[in-house]
């Protein structure tokens, strides 16, 4: 390797590190400032809470309130709705891909359903399904399904026609075409749809838990706000952030495995 090349590589690494350090620095600065301002009573920590209070609250939850049960419940709901969304929307997108008539018929329904604020359906879900975990999962499905179908379908139909034609010269079946062209050429799209599905499901689950729940992170946040315990609310949000990072890492691992 020539010296110039070494220097070039070094510079790239340096820039990467610099970005990372700045990001970490900003995070620490915010936390520090937050703590400092509430210690000095410049901001009202009753409303804003503070990093130390959040840690204390989470510790209390862990000691007295079965914290991991709440996390487990939210995670479980989220993963179930994520898997259901992915499977159902994949099947529907494939059906639409191979049946132009169905696709044309469904399309306006999807658009309207997509623009409808799903929270508005909350009361109906509760009445039809009952105030239970199923209702929470249905809420998440309502929120994530349509977007997922549209993303997958749009990717599928923009697959290179020539590659499909080539496979057809070898008498490929619809299934062959799906496996050998549609899926491989949509890998990136499928992956980004999975990521979107995940965050949509998490949103749906929290909304569902706000609507009706006996446990879960959404339940903790709602309860905290009802008793005006902002430490609890902030702790809930913090835990949610950790959960979404965790889930994101899982998807990343799945992507690498594919």
């Amino acid at each position: 390797m020539s010296n110039e090349q070494k220097k070039y590589i070094f510079n790239i690494k340096l820039k990467k590190l610099l970005v990372l350090f700045t990001q970490i620095f900003i995070l620490i600065l915010i936390l520090f400032l937050w703590q400092y301002l509430s210690d000095k009573k410049i901001i009202n920590s009753f409303i804003t809470s503070s990093p130390l209070k959040i840690i204390k609250t989470i510790n209390n939850l862990y000691m007295q309130n079965n914290l991991f049960n709440h996390i487990f419940i939210t995670l479980k709901e989220c993963i179930i709705s994520f898997i259901l969304t992915t499977i159902i929307s994949f099947i529907i997108a494939v059906i639409m891909l191979y049946n132009n008539f169905i696709a044309k018929v469904i399309e306006p329904y999807l658009i309207v359903l997509n623009s409808l604020p799903k929270v508005a359906l909350g009361p109906i879900i509760i009445i039809w399904i009952g105030a239970n975990q199923k209702a929470i999962i249905v809420m998440a499905l309502l929120i994530s399904l349509i977007v997922s179908i549209q993303n997958l379908y749009n990717g599928f139909i923009s697959t290179d026609k020539l590659k499909i034609k080539l496979l057809k010269t070898f008498n490929a079946s619809s299934f062959d075409i799906l496996i050998n062209v549609i899926i491989p050429s949509n890998k990136e799209n499928i992956y980004s749809t999975l990521k979107i599905n995940l965050s949509m499901c998490l949103i749906g689950i929290i909304m569902g838990e706000f609507l009706t729940s006996k446990a879960g992170i959404g339940h903790l946040i709602l309860y905290g706000s009802q008793v005006f315990n902002l430490d609890l609310v902030m702790s809930g949000i913090f835990i949610l952030t950790i959960i979404s990072i965790l889930l994101y890492l899982i998807i990343n691992t799945i992507k690498k495995a594919l």
């Binding site: 590659k163 034609k165 008498n171 890998k187």
Partner: peptide
């Protein structure tokens, strides 16, 4: 039509695979 996610050999064998 070349399938960029396949190797050249896999590309050439594609017809046989489909059939």
């Amino acid at each position: 039509a070349l399938f960029p996610w396949l190797t050249i050999l896999e590309n050439v064998l594609l017809g046989l695979k489909i059939k």
